[in-house]
């Protein structure tokens, strides 16, 4: 098991043993419901969940991965542990998903920085140890690169859709793949998310902590609003569209051409900009203002006279966005999907 320093626990709080940590600090969970000083941690936890629910990444009070005061560090870890308790109390799986994803993103940033920190060997060692302990991938630093066995690389990269991740587009030598720090971390993004969500799912469900009822109720309300509306009709969508939604839901990057296809398709099915926008929330580079602007532009509601049609199947094939199945039934545009049949 890894031995973590204080600031590491703050950066990677999911590695800390929750119960032990609290005991160490001399606290019990119930105190968080009443103790006015600990209230700050509760507020932080709530904030942390809200940020995640909105599809963004929580920015901690750490500066360069370090805190000025010990209590800041403590609060970082507390707020994470409490957030899990709160989410468990709501029992909402949407929250688990969003929170795990956001926390994975956050950890990803730190891992990337730690790996890329050429001057600090212990940071690099720790990051590689974490990756080894959690995902059983042995990463070795070689000059500016991190090398991992080809088989480990493939195990993770096969689920990626961008051509850049094909093995042929990597430097491969002697059974190893050479990666930059950001690619190394990107490779395990999904697993990191899974790891965090499995930690939440497997955590025992606590009993309600007196004093936190209101917060839990607030979170339930937030979560209910989140429940996406678009999945209701998924059954009638062509494979290319399903795939695009899938990519976005997993928080992976969908190329611009894919977003264009998805948006124009949904618009053609009569969905509104407001209904479509949340789909893009998980995208790594999500920006709500830009997204709305672009969607409005496509829909022809923002001044421009043209509305944009969904690209043809042929065009989508050249963009690697087509995932044709028998159901496509010789249509030439995704918007015809399902309509040809009697």
């Amino acid at each position: 098991m890894l031995v973590l320093g204080q600031d590491e626990k703050a950066k990677y709080p999911f590695l800390a043993d929750a119960g032990e940590y609290l005991k160490d600090k001399g606290f019990s969970l119930t105190q968080f419901g009443s103790d006015p000083v600990l209230k700050l941690s509760v507020e932080k936890a709530l904030h942390r969940i809200k940020v995640a629910a909105a599809g963004e990444v929580y920015k901690s009070d750490l500066i360069d991965g370090q805190a000025s005061k010990d209590y800041v560090l403590e609060r970082e870890v507390f707020s994470f542990l409490l957030a899990i308790v709160l989410i468990k109390l709501t029992g909402m799986s949407t929250l688990i998903k969003r929170f795990a994803l956001a926390e994975a993103r956050r950890a990803e940033n730190y891992l990337e920085k730690d790996l890329g920190n050429a001057s600090n060997k212990s940071k690099i060692d720790l990051a590689t140890r974490i990756i080894y302990d959690l995902f059983n991938i042995e990463i070795i630093k070689e000059n500016d690169f991190f090398v991992i066995p080809v088989s480990d690389y493939l195990k993770h990269s096969v689920t990626f859709h961008e051509r850049e991740w094909k093995l042929i587009n990597r430097h491969v030598e002697n059974g190893k793949v050479f990666l930059t720090p950001d690619k190394t971390v990107r490779l395990i993004r999904k697993e990191l998310g899974n790891y965090i969500s499995s930690k939440i799912i497997n955590a025992p469900k606590p009993t309600m902590i007196p004093g936190l009822e209101n917060i839990v109720n607030e979170l339930i309300t937030i979560s209910k609003k989140l429940t996406p509306t678009y999945t209701i009709t998924t059954g009638e969508y062509p494979p290319c569209i399903k795939h695009a939604i899938d990519v976005l839901e997993k928080g992976e990057n969908l190329p611009h051409s894919g977003r264009f296809m998805l948006a124009t398709f949904l618009l053609s099915r009569g969905q509104t900009v407001q209904q479509i926008a949340p789909l893009f929330k998980n995208a790594p580079d999500y920006n709500s203002r830009v997204t709305l602007y672009q969607l409005n532009h496509l829909a022809g509601t923002s001044g421009s006279a043209t509305t944009y049609a969904c690209p043809s199947c042929e065009k989508l094939k050249t963009q690697d966005l087509c995932f044709i199945t028998k159901e496509c039934d010789n249509i030439i545009n995704p918007s015809q999907f399902g309509k040809k049949r009697k």
């Binding site: 493939l154 094909k166 042929i168 587009n169």
Partner: peptide, 16 residues
């Protein structure tokens, strides 16, 4: 799936 990726590598397919 992984073997198929390996095949693409060996056949030099999918290069950008």
């Amino acid at each position: 799936k992984e073997r198929s990726e390996l095949v693409d590598y060996i056949m030099f397919r999918g290069a950008i």
